[in-house]
């Protein structure tokens, strides 16, 4: 068990260093990139610095994640309270059915509603990102042994204390898995945001596809790929670290 924990931080470090190296160093690979695209005038994407695009991409994903977590976990908590139970089946079904919608469709439909730019992108990312978090939060909260909750109430914990000290910590592992899914999907969808006017790491790829410049496309692809791998391995590390030896006892 210790070995897994010790090894788990190495991957994020590896991907992160590669990502940083690529962000800073790609412009220096002009010669190599020219091999891919011998005919173009410009081989290095210069419309915007890679670092800036990276930061914008991360900001979009992080902002959406923050909103999604608040909405998703919040909604799950509300519908699992005694007075909100009426809405529980609906919430569960919406979370399931909503995930069958392809993210690109949600992104596209945000434009008629909110125009172009970062706002509809954020909206679509948040909307789509809420679903896995909501689903997992519901599953996590409902999977807690009822005897534990009964004992907590019986010992005199107030409802808020039960939620904060017992329910959420016990559901945390499952919720984090949901956040991981949400963020992973959103990193990909944010890249598509370039098509609706947001400024993200998808810009070089779209520019490359539009102009027929493969070198641009490769640069953008490498950066996004490394970003995705970094974030995913970070979550893996987080999940391994959050897994306490207290496996939940099976409900009898």
């Amino acid at each position: 068990m210790k070995d897994v924990r010790q090894a788990a931080w190495r991957w994020p470090l590896l991907w992160l260093s590669l990502l940083m190296a690529a962000t800073v160093g790609l412009p220096h690979f002009e010669a190599a990139l020219r091999v891919i695209e011998p005919g173009a005038r410009a081989v290095i994407y210069t419309q915007a610095p890679f670092g800036g695009l990276l930061v914008e991409h991360l900001l979009l994903v992080a902002a959406a994640a923050g909103l999604s977590i608040a909405l998703g976990v919040g909604a799950a908590v509300l519908v699992s309270r005694p007075w909100g139970k009426d809405f529980l089946p609906l919430a569960g079904q919406v979370a399931s059915i909503g995930q069958t919608f392809p993210p690109v469709a949600v992104l596209a439909l945000a434009v008629p509603a909110l125009g172009f730019g970062a706002l509809p992108t954020l909206f679509a990312l948040t909307l789509y990102g809420v679903l896995p978090i909501l689903r997992n939060s519901l599953a996590g909260l409902r999977g807690i042994d009822p005897a534990v909750l009964e004992a907590a109430r019986g010992m005199g914990m107030s409802p808020v204390q039960v939620l904060w000290q017992v329910e959420l910590p016990l559901a945390l592992e499952v919720i984090i898995a949901g956040i991981r899914t949400s963020v992973t999907i959103n990193i990909a969808t944010a890249a598509l945001g370039s098509t609706i006017g947001a400024s993200t790491l998808g810009d070089p790829i779209i520019a490359g596809l539009v102009n027929g410049n493969t070198a641009y496309v490769v640069q953008g692809a490498v950066l996004i790929g490394l970003l995705a791998l970094t974030v995913d391995s970070l979550f893996e590390w987080l999940q391994v670290g959050a897994a306490t030896p207290s496996a939940q006892p099976a409900r009898t």
Partner: peptide, 14 residues
């Protein structure tokens, strides 16, 4: 699976 689709499409172009 972790690599965004746009990126993978792009990487296969070359």
């Amino acid at each position: 699976q972790t690599i965004p689709s746009l990126a993978l499409f792009g990487l296969l172009l070359a």
